[in-house]
Amino acid sequence: MRIAFYGSSLVSAYWNGAATYYRGLLRALASLGYEITFYEPDVYDRQKHRDIDPPTWCRVVVYEGSVAAMKRAAAEAAGADIVVKASGVGFEDDLLLEEVLRAARPTALKIFWDVDAPATLAVLKAAEDHPLRSALPSLDLVLTYGGGDPVVRSYRAIGARECIPVYNALDPETHHPVAPEPRFNADLAFLGNRLPDRESRVETFFLEPASRLPERRFLLGGAGWHDKPLPESVVYIGHVPTADHNAFNATPKAVLNISRSSMAANGFSPATRVFEAAGAGACLITDAWEGIDLFLKPQEEVLVARDGRDVAELMCSLTAGQAKQIGQRALSRVLGEHTYAHRASEVDQTFRRWFKRPEAAE
Rank of each mutant, 00 (worst) to 15 (best):
R2I: 05
I3P: 05
Y6S: 03
S8R: 15
S8C: 15
T20E: 13
Y22D: 02
L26T: 11
R27G: 06
L32G: 04
Y34E: 02
E35V: 07
T37Y: 02
D42L: 06
K48F: 05
K48Q: 12
E64V: 06
V67F: 04
G79F: 00
V83K: 05
G88S: 10
V89Q: 14
G90E: 03
D94G: 01
L95H: 14
E99Q: 13
V100F: 02
L101F: 06
A103D: 05
A104T: 07
A104G: 09
P106G: 07
A108E: 02
L109S: 05
W113K: 09
V115A: 11
A117G: 01
P118W: 08
V123M: 14
V123H: 11
V123W: 06
L124G: 06
E128W: 08
H130M: 10
P131Q: 11
A135R: 13
P137S: 11
L139C: 06
D140L: 04
V142D: 08
L143P: 00
Y155K: 06
G159R: 12
C163R: 06
Y167L: 04
L170Q: 11
P172N: 01
E173K: 10
E173P: 00
P180Q: 11
P180A: 07
F184S: 09
S200N: 12
F205Y: 15
F205P: 01
F206Y: 07
E215D: 14
F218M: 12
A223N: 14
A223C: 01
A223Q: 14
Y236G: 03
I237P: 01
G238K: 10
N257C: 01
S262Q: 07
S262T: 10
N266I: 08
G267K: 12
R273V: 02
R273N: 03
F275Y: 14
E276F: 07
A278F: 11
G279P: 12
A282E: 08
D287Y: 04
W289Q: 09
D293Y: 02
Q299G: 08
Q299Y: 10
R306L: 13
G308I: 06
D310K: 02
D310Y: 03
E313F: 00
S317F: 04
S317A: 15
T319N: 10
Q322R: 15
Q328F: 01
V334W: 08
H338F: 13
H342F: 12
H342K: 03
S345I: 00
E346H: 04
V347E: 00
R352S: 02
R353V: 00
A361V: 02
E362D: 00
